[in-house]
Amino acid sequence: MNTYEIVAMIALVLSVFLLLRVISLQSQLNEIKSDLEWLKNRPGNAGVSTSYRAKSVSSTSEVHPPHSPPMIDQATFEERILFLTHDNKKIQAIKEVREARGWGLKEAKDYVDHLENEYKQKNL
């Protein structure tokens, strides 16, 4: 291998590395945009449309395991989860429930499904 081939290989590897970094940053930017959209659409903000308003879950005893930690602001948490499901980001919603509650995958998915179904039933 001569010097030009080595330089070309290094440039190629560097280009692939930079492409992967750009993709990662784009993903982070999309998550930030989603969070900003959620904050902008929260009820109670001036000039914000209230067409998407989350409802509290009235009977969550069948969904919550007995060892779940208490949530500081349950309504805001549920709004966030419903916003993500409404925005076709159900996997992200399940992930956030798992992180916030310390639940397993099945419990978190059941909780998100329960919130989504109850919201749909109340807004028919």
Rank of each mutant, 00 (worst) to 15 (best):
F83R: 11
P69R: 15
H86V: 01
D87W: 14
E78S: 01
P66M: 00
T50Y: 05
E79F: 15
K55P: 01
A100Y: 02
R98W: 02
E99H: 04
D87L: 01
I72H: 12
S59D: 15
F77G: 03
E99R: 11
A93S: 06
S68W: 07
V63R: 10
E62W: 00
N88W: 08
I94A: 09
S51H: 07
D87G: 00
D87N: 13
I81V: 14
T50A: 04
L82E: 02
H67G: 03
D87I: 01
E62A: 04
N88P: 01
K95Y: 12
R53D: 07
I81S: 11
P65Q: 15
K55H: 12
E96M: 07
D73H: 02
L84Y: 12
L82P: 02
E96P: 00
S56Y: 05
I94K: 12
A54I: 08
I72E: 11
T76D: 12
Q92S: 10
V63S: 13
R80K: 14
T85H: 06
V63Q: 14
K89C: 02
P65N: 15
S49R: 06
A75C: 03
L84T: 01
F83C: 06
A100H: 04
R53F: 03
E79P: 00
Y52G: 03
I91N: 08
V63C: 06
E78T: 04
R98D: 00
V97T: 11
T60R: 08
Y52F: 14
E62D: 08
R53K: 13
T76K: 11
S49C: 07
L82I: 05
A93Y: 12
T50W: 04
